[in-house]
Write a protein that binds this DNA or RNA. Structure first.
Lengths: 120, 120
DNA sequence: CTCTGAGGCATAGTTAATCTATGCAAAGGA
DNA sequence: TCCTTTGCATAGATTAACTATGCCTCAGAG
């Protein structure tokens, strides 16, 4: 036993994974591999968001197909074979749109969820 | 044909529909039918969020099964046969949790998406 | 040297939520 | 009468996420 539960389990907001990946690459500046992307998201979100590998790699493939990231084989900091992802110019441009869309939906949600909450 | 395009098409944030429904019922106070719930969400969100009927009715069924809403047949304002949904006490309690979860995830997302944006 | 754990990629199969398309039915105005 | 709006509901497709699994390599422990 002694499985002293995590206070709350990590999750994901459906539909936001691609934005999280793009933003992570943007913030990190230089190319990053999948494992590193997942760890970065988890760390920056304070362990709230957990990206499963079975979600991550398909998402990276979708982003590649759309031309928003470009992948190439390289070597990680730990001297291991790794697939490094870099933002393409199109991907960089795409981020702004994704953020705008997200915030537009968010505002709309909030209008429904928050009746008339002043400042909180 | 004056089909002057919508500036942006209405969408949904996946995973948030149940919260939207519960909140709508809470705000409206008295029982509401499916059609009315959809119109309410669309109106309050300023036509950004559009709830499709094929999403709405299954969602209402899920909420019924979980015991968060209770449905009964009645008559709408327009004198038509309608299925009226009311929040149960459990459903009312559930709203707080749903909102808390949503905002927790949202904050986590924002930590990733917004590098160091002060107050916006 | 061998074993093991951590780092790392990837896919197959399942589940869950949403959308599309369709059907039915009654009310009320043209 | 006919058509639009209101109203409920399901079946099937799509999509994104999850679970579970497998393989490979590096580095440190024994």
């Amino acid at each position: 036993m002694a499985k002293a539960g995590q206070p709350k389990k990590s999750e994901m907001m459906p539909g936001t994974l691609e934005l999280l990946i793009l933003k992570t690459l943007e913030r990190h500046g230089e190319p990053l591999h999948g494992y590193g992307i997942a760890r970065h998201i988890q760390r920056v979100s304070d362990d709230v968001l957990q990206v499963e590998e079975g979600s991550l790699y398909p998402a990276l493939q979708r982003l590649s197909v759309k031309g928003w990231v470009k992948a190439e084989w390289g070597i990680s900091d730990n001297n291991r074979r790794a697939r490094l992802y870099r933002l393409t110019p199109a991907g960089r441009r795409r981020i702004a749109e994704q953020v705008a869309d997200f915030e537009r939906l968010l505002e709309a949600m909030m209008r429904v969820v928050r009746p008339a909450e002043g400042a909180s």
